[in-house]
């Protein structure tokens, strides 16, 4: 296991000073050490996107990255998107479009959409599909997720 490492990270604008095992994944750190269970584990193998978070503006599958690798980084999880009761427009668009069924893929989908729209505010359908390709959803058939992304684009303009 080896001795613990000290890391400093910012999660949802809150600063943390932590001692972590070198083999602790970012996913487990978020879920079990920080109690941010909105980040989901669907495979632990980098294949489903349920564990997606944003690290320094880029989407990352947190099951594949070690906590020690994000030392110094700014991280956004699903819990960091809404302001109190007020949902972020992307969250609201997912709710209104019926894009949330079981909701297990939802945090990852929303964060990937956020990273996409931060980078490309007016994406083409191809851009959207390219970005969201790594996020699996078994419930919705993706149709209403596409609707949600398109509504969010309009809302954020």
């Amino acid at each position: 296991m080896g001795s613990k490492h000290r890391i400093q990270i910012t999660v949802n604008q809150e600063e943390y000073d932590l001692l972590v095992h070198p083999d602790r994944t970012l996913l487990d750190l978020l879920r079990y050490d920080l109690g941010l269970t909105g980040t989901k584990e669907g495979c632990d193998e980098g294949d489903c996107g349920a564990c997606t978070v944003i690290v320094n503006g880029k989407v990352v599958t947190s099951c594949l990255i070690l906590a020690v690798e994000v030392d110094g980084a700014a991280i956004t999880t699903i819990e960091g998107l809404h302001q109190g009761d007020e949902l972020h427009p992307i969250q609201q668009a997912f709710v209104d479009s019926g894009a949330v069924q079981c909701g297990f893929c939802t945090p990852g989908m929303i964060l990937t959409t956020k990273a996409l729209l931060d980078e490309i505010p007016d994406p083409s359908e191809e851009d959207i599909k390219h970005y969201l390709e790594g996020n699996l959803c078994r419930c919705t058939g993706y149709t209403k997720i596409l609707d949600a992304v398109n509504i969010a684009i309009q809302q954020l303009k």
């Binding site: 879920r31 079990y32 109690g35 941010l36 269970t37 909105g38 980040t39 989901k40 584990e41 999880t77 699903i78 819990e79 998107l81 809404h82 949902l87 969250q91 609201q92 997912f94 709710v95 209104d96 479009s97 019926g98 949330v100 069924q101 079981c102 909701g103 297990f104 939802t106 945090p107 929303i110």
Partner: peptide, 23 residues
């Protein structure tokens, strides 16, 4: 009526508790 899922807000916020989230 086309009413969104009543638990969609919780799920979109990441606060919906699934079995694995219980500690």
């Amino acid at each position: 009526k086309r009413i969104p899922h009543r638990d969609a807000v919780e799920k979109a916020k990441g606060s919906a508790v699934f079995t694995s989230d219980i500690k």
